[in-house]
Simulated scan of single mutants.
Amino acid sequence: MTETILVHRAEGVTTITLNRPDKLNCFNGPMHDEVRAAIATAATDGTRCLVLTGAGKGFCAGQDLADRVRAPGAPPPDLGASLDARYNPLIRALKSLEMPVICAVNGIAAGAGANLALACDIVVAARSASFVQSFCKVGLIPDSGGTWTLPHLVGMARATALQMLGDKVSAEQAEAWGMIWKCVGDDDLMTTVHDMARHLAAQPTRGLALTKKALAASAAHSLDAQLDLERDLQAQAGRTKDYREGVAAFMEKRVPKFEGR
Rank of each mutant, 00 (worst) to 15 (best):
G155T: 07
V138C: 10
Q63K: 11
I141W: 13
A201K: 02
E245V: 03
A216C: 09
G58I: 03
V7S: 07
P77Y: 05
K95R: 12
S144K: 04
T53R: 01
C183K: 06
R254F: 04
T191Y: 08
F59E: 05
G260A: 14
F135A: 04
L162P: 00
E3D: 12
A110T: 06
C136Q: 14
G46W: 07
A37N: 09
L233H: 13
S170W: 00
L118R: 00
A55C: 04
M1G: 07
Y87K: 12
I122F: 07
K213S: 06
C120V: 14
L116R: 02
E175M: 08
I5M: 09
M164W: 00
H8P: 02
H152W: 01
A66I: 05
V35T: 06
A85Y: 00
A43L: 08
A110W: 15
L215C: 10
A220P: 06
I5P: 09
Q133P: 02
L233D: 12
T17N: 13
E98L: 09
A117R: 08
A66M: 13
K257R: 13
P204C: 11
P100A: 03
K23P: 03
P76I: 01
V132H: 14
D188L: 00
T15Q: 15
A174L: 07
T160H: 04
I91W: 04
Q173A: 03
G113H: 03
L140C: 13
G238Q: 13
T160C: 07
R9P: 13
K168W: 04
M179T: 10
K182L: 12
P151C: 03
P142F: 00
